[in-house]
Design a protein around this nucleic acid. Sequence first.
DNA 1: CTAGAACCTAGACTGCGATCTAGATCAAGC
DNA 2: GCTTGATCTAGATCGCAGTCTAGGTTCTAG
Lengths: 157, 157
Amino acid sequence: MRVADTDEGKPTGPPGSAPGAAPAGLSIGEVADATGLSVHALRFFEREELFLRPVPRTAGGRRVYEPADVEWLGLCNRLRESGMPIAELKRFAGLVRSGPGNEAERLALLQTHERAVRARIAELGASLEIIHGKVVAYEKHVREGTAAGVWAPTPSR
Amino acid sequence: MRVADTDEGKPTGPPGSAPGAAPAGLSIGEVADATGLSVHALRFFEREELFLRPVPRTAGGRRVYEPADVEWLGLCNRLRESGMPIAELKRFAGLVRSGPGNEAERLALLQTHERAVRARIAELGASLEIIHGKVVAYEKHVREGTAAGVWAPTPSR
DNA sequence: CTAGAACCTAGACTGCGATCTAGATCAAGC
DNA sequence: GCTTGATCTAGATCGCAGTCTAGGTTCTAG
């Protein structure tokens, strides 16, 4: 989200952009803006080896990203926000990084995660039903003065 | 889940049970078994004031719970596992504890949470679609040798 | 040339939600 | 009476996933 550091205001041209260069070449701040990740998080991801390659640098030592990195980070975001731990994401990145030949393994990993997400949705659905039941009970209680399904200050006793 | 401490094996009769006593009277271990929370978690919950009352003790200082506590913990579990932070659960418990008169507030809190849960389910659904798309792509790739929608070792370049 | 973004590294710190430890005490069965 | 298992308190520790700090360096605009 590019909030930390001494942010604000954006360079007109990305660092690595030569005169009529072709492949974008994005600064860390631009990637942060594009992905919703903080610059801190991007550096953290890199330390954790979540990228598909060593991120190249300018002569001055600044990271230069490409659109493909942003695309990959988009998937990372989806995997993360759906509950995949960093460690597993790292494993997936490792598989992709090591090139063709392990697609079945990647598939298995993704399938496992898909199952986990479906399970999580089901759990949430179950909790939602209970919670919604309580909401309905309270709505009725507030409306009519009944007290069924609503908690008393001291249980039983 | 009653795994920690030096668990295993269960007392024949709960601590506070007089000869022909009526209202159960559950030990912390029994409540742990009944709720799926660890005994540690139960003590932690108590420190955090998540109970609807001060949990009474035997002469020897041991906690004595009642079925109503287990029931309440059941709702707590649902709220927690659906993502409600301890702090908010604590607020809810406080409202219930302070007795009738604030039902509208309790309702509002639950409605807010219900909305949050629905939003979370929607998010997960969105991620699931993406992930499932990848799974399908990989399935096809593994089956046919195509490579669309599958990540190459080095992005673009 | 200079100011001020934006960036760099290494490493410390945060918040949440438990979970575990140590060192007692309590209770039940033999 | 003694052993064994369950519980007690207070406080330390943990795992995760960042987030932030300190102390520079690099760029770009004016």
